[in-house]
Each structure stands twice: as C-alpha cells, then as structure tokens.
C-alpha cells in the first residue's frame, strides 16, 4: 500500500506544489526538497523564507537599464551609474548583462530587454523593454548601441527589429552587433553552413 499525497498534511502539500512551480523541478524533486526543508532546524528554514520574501519585497527593476535594484525610486541603479552612457549594450536578460560585465570587456551601460521577439510564442516588441530603450535614447542620444542579443532566431529577430528602428529614426547613432562565427574549441568539420557562412562574412584582416 502506498501513501497518497492527499493523505499528507495540507502544509506539506502546499510546499510541494510551490516547489513544483519552479523551472526544472518535477513532483519527485519537489517532494524531496519539501522533506529536506522539514528536516532542517527552524532557523535555517526561516532564513530561506526571509530571503524569498525579501527578494520580492525589496527588489525592483531600475527604470533606466532594467537591471534589478534594491534602491527606492529606481530612476537609476548602482549597476548603471558611473558608466559611459554614450555606449549602450542591449541584452536579452539580466544573466547576459552579468556575463558581459564580469568579462570586463564593456565599459558602457546596459539595457536589458527582458526577453526576445518570438512570434511563435506571441511575444512582440511591445512585450519587451523596447519602448523604454527608445525613451532612453530620446532623453540622451548615445554614440553607439551594441546589440548583444543571443545568436538564436528570436535573438536575431530582436536585433534586426532594433537595428531597423534605430537606422530609420536616428541618423547619428552607430548600431553594431556582436560578431558571429566559429567558437573556440570547435572543429570546422562539424560546423554548420550558418556558422561557416557567418565566419567567412565576418573574417578579419590579420596582416
């Protein structure tokens, strides 16, 4: 005879359902996590619940770059102040901005779109922070906008949409995008036509 989940106390059932709603966590893992939380002492569990509550309560998006901030008002944040605002790097997600920031190769500011244009999923330009980017450009014209969207179909669509819009409406802004081509450590033999064609198109002079 197996013990059905409905026979468990309602508090446990609620926590299992809450864990299951997280990405990559199925019912079994949710159940394991729930019983792990139950086995922990009260202090540890309270720390977790406080951290979860604080994340939602204290954090919001910066109204300039749309990075996460704990500063009230949110007109600008510690991530976008003291950065070269004439150079804006447009990325899809916060993680992309962190990755570029950690590499130290970009000294300018960021603009996070919070997604990419995906017609198949019904996501259009109006669902992203594109209008906010346009407002930002209108407030202070940057010298260059670097489109650093992912090299996926959705990322490319977003990049094309933005470059078309900026080229049509602003004459003096330089629009660039990250180079595409062969990744370090790959074999030419296994490269697809797309990658090879991009690599040839973006080849550089070395002499």
């Amino acid at each position: 005879m197996t013990l059905g989940r409905s026979s468990l106390p309602i508090e446990i059932q609620k926590l299992i359902i809450a864990f299951s709603s997280l990405p990559g966590i199925g019912p079994k893992t949710a159940q394991r996590l729930t019983f792990y939380v139950l086995s922990q002492n009260t202090d540890e569990t309270l720390k977790l619940s406080e951290a979860l509550r604080d994340v939602k309560k204290n954090l919001s998006y910066c109204q300039n770059c749309f990075f996460i901030t704990n500063e009230e008002g949110g007109e600008s944040c510690s991530f976008c102040t003291n950065k070269d605002s004439s150079l804006i790097c447009v990325v899809e997600n916060i993680v992309d901005a962190i990755t570029i920031e950690m590499s130290g190769i970009h000294s300018g500011s960021f603009h996070i779109l919070h997604g990419s244009i995906s017609p198949m999923n019904g996501i259009g330009p109006e669902n992203l922070k594109i209008n906010e980017l346009i407002k930002r450009i209108n407030n202070k014209l940057p010298k260059e906008i670097i489109l650093a969207t992912n090299p996926t179909l959705e990322g490319e669509a977003t990049s094309m949409y933005l470059s078309n819009y900026i080229k049509d409406n602003y004459e003096n802004i330089k629009v660039t995008k990250l180079a595409k081509g062969l990744a370090s450590g790959t074999d030419l033999e296994y490269s697809d036509f797309n990658t090879l064609s991009n690599a040839f198109e973006n080849r550089t002079n070395i002499n």
Binding site: P119, L153, A157, M160, Y161, D192, F193, N194
Partner: peptide
C-alpha cells in the same frame, strides 16, 4: 546535418516573421 538554412529569409525581419507564420 543542415540541408537548407534559408539564410536569405533569416537576414530580413519581415521575411523571418512571415516564414514563422507559414511554419505555425
């Protein structure tokens, strides 16, 4: 193995959107 990547379609926003409509 890619046989046809429809590169010309993917380099223009309006064509890309239209091809996605056809696929859906």
């Amino acid at each position: 193995q890619s046989i046809n990547s429809f590169m010309k379609i993917k380099s223009k926003y309006n064509l890309l959107i239209r091809s996605q409509y056809l696929v859906e």
